[in-house]
Amino acid sequence: MLSAQVVLVALFLHASAASADDLAAPGSPNMTACSGSINPPVGCVTIPIVSDSCFNFVGGASGLDKEVSWVQVPAEYACTYFQNFGCLAVEEDDHATLTCGIWNMFDVLVPTASGTQNFNDLTSSLSCVRSGSAASDV
């Protein structure tokens, strides 16, 4: 049996030229990540959420590695975006958790030793969980 992540990568490899709507899994919640704008959509990919699983931007989604500028998190979910593959958080400034809504990663600020930095073009992996009342850590 294939793991959920392998199945997701296979979907992206098969449909890398497809529109974001074509990649959505029917009946499952999805989050959207865009390298350009979200409205109108430019460089957007819809990612089916497998709760508590790590999604790495590899394979058909590798074009988004370190290129995510906009995201849309569905209602009742919180997604954490990581600078590292494998959803690995080493430092306080290498991840950001966002709740439902549309987010411009330029506006998502994380603390650093010298102040704050935005999270634009930093994401390499993400993980989402169902969390109807979770608060953003940014």
Rank of each mutant, 00 (worst) to 15 (best):
C128H: 13
Y81C: 00
I49W: 01
F85G: 02
D121T: 09
V58H: 01
M31F: 13
Q117T: 10
A17D: 08
A4D: 14
G115M: 13
R130E: 10
S16H: 12
V73M: 05
T112V: 03
F106Y: 09
A61K: 05
P29I: 02
I47Q: 10
I49K: 13
P29V: 04
Q5G: 06
S37T: 15
A135P: 02
P111M: 03
V6A: 15
S51K: 14
T46L: 07
A61P: 02
V108N: 08
D137Q: 04
V50E: 06
T99F: 12
E67Y: 05
A96K: 02
G63A: 11
V129G: 03
N118E: 08
T123R: 00
G27P: 14
W103K: 15
G59F: 07
T99H: 06
G132C: 13
E92G: 05
C79W: 01
G60W: 01
T32V: 15
P40Q: 11
Q72M: 10
L126E: 02
H95Y: 08
G60Y: 04
T97P: 01
G63F: 12
T99G: 07
I38G: 12
M105S: 02
S131Y: 03
V6M: 13
I47P: 01
P26N: 04
F119G: 00
C128V: 06
F57L: 11
Q117L: 08
A135W: 09
L2V: 12
G132S: 15
L88M: 04
G36E: 06
L122Q: 14
D52P: 00
E76Y: 10
V7L: 14
S62A: 13
D121I: 14
S127L: 11
V68A: 00
D22A: 13
E91R: 11
A33T: 15
P26V: 03
T46W: 00
A78V: 12
Q83D: 14
N84Q: 14
L2Q: 13
A96C: 09
K66S: 14
C34M: 08
S16V: 08
S35C: 11
P111V: 00
F82H: 03
V73S: 05
V9M: 09
H14K: 15
D65A: 15
G43K: 10
A96R: 03
